[in-house]
Amino acid sequence: MEFETNSKDKERKKLEEIDPVVEAKNISVWYGEEKALENIGLKVPKNNVTAIIGPSGCGKSTFLRCINRMNDLIEGAKVEGKIVYKDKNLYDPDIDVASLRRKIGMVFQKPNPFPKSVYENIAYGPKIGGMNDKEELDEIVEESLKDAALWDEVKNRLHSPAMDLSGGQQQRLCIARALAVEPDVLLMDEPASALDPIAMSKIEDLIYDLKQDYTVIIVTHNMQQAARVSDYTAFLFMGKLIEHSPTEKLFENPDKKKTEDYITGRFG
């Protein structure tokens, strides 16, 4: 009988067909003379989790920081190319970086709450944005903490220092803080790498829930984590995008030899 190839990937749309919320076009980044990223083109689908994996120093965090222009803060960093968000190039000169960062929030590797109370941490963003109405702030704080699955744990200690929370709680607080300014996209730079497994799995559950309302881009060096939480995975190596596929595809049957070598741990 004949060979028959069964069609697969029923639920996951092919990358070519998706309507991206953020799209990187030919992004290159230099740190001084050193080229950190080379011609990255990446479509980020809406209400999905996109994971970026790759070995240390492959440029994955650099890429993430391009999306909300955090690289602007690094001396000597130069970005070329376009990042398109809502039909606008984020690197156009007329873009207001501060309001851009409110739309594309970020969570960092180490939990970095401000040395203030839990409440003040969450209210920081809205206050910066000029909101001073106490009732409204209360509501935002509660809403954000609920979204970050932290409300039940901290509702009785909203005014105690955020530093007193455990590492995992601090990280969820940071996520809640980022949610408080109602972003569209949430960038996460290895958000669970400094946490113990239980705290990590809570964060992962949270990421899964978040994609209902937000688009999440997560950088991780933990491949199992990428496999667990993401819908699409991009593999970066030495500043280049090697492969970008639906996560099952990438972890079951990657197209590129380099991807396979990396994810199976047979590198170099």
Binding site: L73, A98, L100, G105, M106, F108, N112
Partner: peptide, 19 residues
């Protein structure tokens, strides 16, 4: 980290320093 966090919330440089 704390500066980064503030910038990532959309704070300007002075807001970050001040707050």
């Amino acid at each position: 980290d704390i500066r980064d966090a503030s910038f990532a919330m959309g704070a300007t440089r002075w807001q970050t320093i001040r707050n």
